[in-house]
């Protein structure tokens, strides 16, 4: 009822405001007032408003920064993320000064050169020198950014060397939950495909593939050891999803019919992060970041980063895929593994 009243009031106010405006305008027009002319005084007011706006805009920026910067993502919890963060900071160092200087120029000029009847504008139609300057200077700045950026990018996208000690995990997205599968002792993921999905085997693991016997499937939460490279392989059962792990500066889409990959080295355990963020309830998260249906907004999995020992303990307490099969000997022939 309250809302209804408010809405009706708002509507009435709008209608009457429109009526008043209309009457005022009609009478002005009939008196010959040129409602489209900008008087010098009016022009002055607008010019001053330009400066007011400049101040407002910068203060708003500063206010947001002061009020919200502590809500931003905490320090990167992965090795490459540190590089990403410093690249980000360098980029801000380019962006913010340009933002500030150009805005000062823009609104200052607008204020300063507001119309005066006795002044002439300066006929200045081009200057090759100036134009060359503002082609070359941005080009140089961009060269730096591009080189720095691509250097990071190439490092990030290089997969983990399979000789190296690492953890191999497959992430599977489906409407609307995640599953994670560990490759197990053989460091090989058994073959999987949607055709094998049945009952609890939501990841579609092919039980005839011997590589799958020691695979470990978990839901709801997965663990990774600190300071060990983690190689992720992403898959999807149905539509596109995106495995987004913001604290690790990591993201990769999950594409049905295709395997994608990403890797990082976690550097801060969950426990340490709780301290850093001053938040007892802090958890690393895996979110879905590609529109995937009605419950896209609620498709999450917790990530626990812990010491190597704790991780090993946790892993050994998990059930192996082979042990859930009805008859382990049934599979028979060794099938060559997929890469």
């Amino acid at each position: 009822m309250m809302v209804l009243l408010v809405s009706v009031t708002v509507l009435l106010v709008i209608i009457s405001a429109a009526q008043i405006l209309k009457i005022a305008e009609l009478s002005a027009i009939s008196k010959g007032v040129k409602v489209y002319e900008i008087s010098e005084k009016d022009n002055r007011v607008q010019a001053v408003l330009m400066l007011v706006f400049l101040v407002f805009y910068f203060s708003f920026f500063a206010w947001q920064y002061l009020k919200w910067s502590h809500l931003m993502l905490p320090v990167s919890a992965s090795e490459h993320g540190v590089g990403v963060d410093s690249l980000m900071n360098v980029t801000w160092l380019f962006i913010i000064p340009v933002f500030i200087i150009t805005h000062i120029l823009l609104f200052w000029f607008a204020f300063k050169y507001a119309f005066k009847a006795n002044r002439k504008a300066v006929f200045f139609s081009h200057s090759n020198k100036l134009e060359l300057v503002w082609t070359l200077v941005p080009s140089l700045a961009l060269t730096v950014l591009i080189l720095y950026g691509l250097n990071n990018w190439n490092k990030i996208m290089t997969p983990v060397n399979s000789e190296e000690d690492h953890v191999l995990i497959e992430l599977l997205g489906q409407q609307f939950s995640w599953g994670a599968r560990y490759a197990g002792d053989d460091k090989k993921l058994g073959r999987a495909n949607v055709n094998y999905i049945e009952g609890a085997n939501f990841m579609g693991i092919d039980s005839t593939d011997n590589n799958c016997k020691d695979d470990i499937v978990v839901k709801g939460e997965f663990h990774i050891p600190v300071n060990v490279p983690v190689q992720f392989v992403m898959r999807s059962n149905d539509v596109l999803h995106s495995a987004y792990m913001p604290h690790f500066r990591a993201q990769m889409n999950c594409v049905p019919g295709m395997k994608t990959q990403f890797n990082f080295v976690p550097t801060i355990t969950s426990k340490e992060m709780k301290k850093i963020t001053n938040n007892e309830n802090f958890e690393y998260l895996l979110l879905c970041n590609k529109i995937c249906g009605a419950a896209h907004y609620n498709m999450q999995m917790n990530i626990v980063v812990e010491s190597k020992e704790d991780y090993a303990k946790w892993l050994s307490s998990q059930k192996k895929f082979g042990s859930s099969l009805p008859n382990p000997s049934e599979g028979g022939a060794l099938v060559e593994t997929q890469k």
Binding site: Q46, F109, Y113, A114, F115
Partner: peptide
Amino acid sequence: LTTLWKGNIKFS
């Protein structure tokens, strides 16, 4: 920006 510089601006 340079166009605004030393202009004689009418704020329509």
